[in-house]
Amino acid sequence: MFKNLIPYKFSPDDNDFSVISKALKTEKKLLFNKIEDSQSYACGFSHIVKDNYIIETDNRILLKVIFSHKSIKKSTIDSKLEERLDKIKEENKTNEISKHVADIYKYQVEAECLRFAPITSKEIYILIDNYTNYIYVSAATTNVAEEALNLLRKLIGKLVCHKIGSNLIGDKIINHLCFNGKDLPAELFIDDYPLISANDKNSVKVKIDGMHKNDPHFLNILMGLSVRSIDMSLVNIQDKNDCQKLASFAFCPSNNGIFIFKNFNYDLIDGQEEYTDYDDSYFYTSKMILIGKYMNNILLNLNLFCN
């Protein structure tokens, strides 16, 4: 849960999340139902635990959205349609079939293919943190995140929030590493051997792995590039002699600087990962608290670094 994550900021004055629980009971059309034979797409809010569509704890709200679809290759439809039309021509002893008739048979072929097409589904979690006024969406791309938030918007009638980012963040990280630029806040740490993806001015991608971040060759490669992904960690610096890693992630700002987090691991402390009963709400409440706490610290420090 939340291995990928995109944060959004909201104002409590512009949003009323207290209506979610009631809306889930009344807006049945927004609840997820499995795709039927002739359908190609379905989406909606789904159970998280047993019959519960929502988990609320410590002033945080968790929802789950499922997007499900069937896809058929155009070549498959075209091939089957051609076979069908050839058979019709043979039966009717003709070489021509009108477009109207062909369209009818195409619709039939598509419906038949849909019945047996494999279903692909993805689960997206939405965590609303009323303590810090952040919404976290467990998506790897902004398009998927926006799709999930649009469903939430339909559920509650109004949703005002904005993505977090800085179009300078990629260059600032390069300056920090290569030119002794502005220091990262102490709670953020770039791993000693980070996996880095970067672009040059012509959008040529460069990937660096297995080199120490202080290696001169590493720094020479990075010069003139803009970071698109870099391994980082959130650490506890209360004890300078024992710096404890709390969470790790790949920080992946988009081309326009939107903050995206991937490979987010927030179960690094011994004992945190022991409880894994996915049918018990306690599993989710513990994750909600950790994500809310750690992500708030990460975003606070990234904002300090950007400003």
Rank of each mutant, 00 (worst) to 15 (best):
residue 41 Y to G: 01
residue 70 K to G: 00
residue 181 G to E: 02
residue 59 N to S: 13
residue 142 T to K: 09
residue 207 K to P: 05
residue 256 N to G: 05
residue 127 L to V: 02
residue 141 T to C: 04
residue 228 R to L: 03
residue 217 H to D: 14
residue 3 K to L: 12
residue 258 I to N: 09
residue 306 C to G: 04
residue 134 Y to T: 06
residue 235 V to W: 04
residue 117 A to T: 04
residue 142 T to E: 13
residue 110 E to P: 07
residue 261 F to H: 06
residue 167 N to I: 12
residue 301 N to M: 06
residue 162 H to P: 07
residue 127 L to H: 05
residue 196 I to H: 01
residue 119 I to E: 08
residue 197 S to R: 11
residue 123 E to S: 15
residue 200 D to F: 07
residue 301 N to Q: 07
residue 48 I to F: 05
residue 232 M to I: 05
residue 227 V to P: 08
residue 140 A to I: 09
residue 300 L to R: 13
residue 195 L to E: 12
residue 125 Y to W: 01
residue 303 N to P: 03
residue 51 D to M: 02
residue 3 K to T: 12
residue 42 A to N: 07
residue 114 L to D: 00
residue 171 D to A: 15
residue 180 N to S: 11
residue 251 F to W: 03
residue 10 F to A: 03
residue 292 G to I: 13
residue 100 H to T: 15
residue 283 F to S: 11
residue 6 I to N: 00
residue 297 N to W: 08
residue 3 K to Y: 12
residue 155 L to Q: 02
residue 92 N to T: 12
residue 179 F to K: 10
residue 148 A to G: 08
residue 9 K to H: 13
residue 256 N to S: 08
residue 189 F to T: 06
residue 151 L to Q: 05
residue 57 T to G: 12
residue 110 E to D: 08
residue 138 S to Y: 01
residue 182 K to I: 11
residue 37 D to N: 06
residue 248 S to W: 02
residue 166 S to R: 04
residue 160 V to Y: 12
residue 136 Y to E: 02
residue 159 L to T: 02
residue 45 F to Q: 08
residue 249 F to D: 01
residue 92 N to D: 06
residue 228 R to P: 02
residue 129 D to L: 07
residue 291 I to C: 05
residue 74 K to I: 12
residue 184 L to N: 06
residue 172 K to R: 15
residue 280 D to Y: 10
residue 209 D to K: 13
residue 26 T to R: 09
residue 240 K to P: 08
residue 16 D to T: 09
residue 197 S to K: 13
residue 215 D to N: 09
residue 32 F to I: 10
residue 210 G to R: 10
residue 220 N to T: 05
residue 47 H to T: 14
residue 3 K to G: 11
residue 16 D to G: 07
residue 146 E to H: 13
residue 148 A to C: 04
residue 81 L to I: 03
residue 216 P to N: 00
residue 240 K to D: 14
residue 218 F to W: 06
residue 198 A to V: 08
residue 262 K to T: 13
residue 49 V to A: 01
residue 161 C to Q: 01
residue 296 N to H: 14
residue 59 N to I: 10
residue 243 C to E: 15
residue 224 G to E: 00
residue 147 E to A: 14
residue 78 D to G: 04
residue 229 S to Y: 04
residue 230 I to A: 00
residue 90 E to V: 10
residue 163 K to W: 09
residue 190 I to E: 05
residue 280 D to Q: 11
residue 249 F to A: 01
residue 96 E to T: 15
residue 177 L to G: 03
residue 228 R to I: 09
residue 94 T to G: 07
residue 244 Q to I: 12
residue 206 V to D: 13
residue 153 R to M: 08
residue 186 A to P: 10
residue 8 Y to G: 02
residue 69 H to S: 15
residue 265 N to T: 08
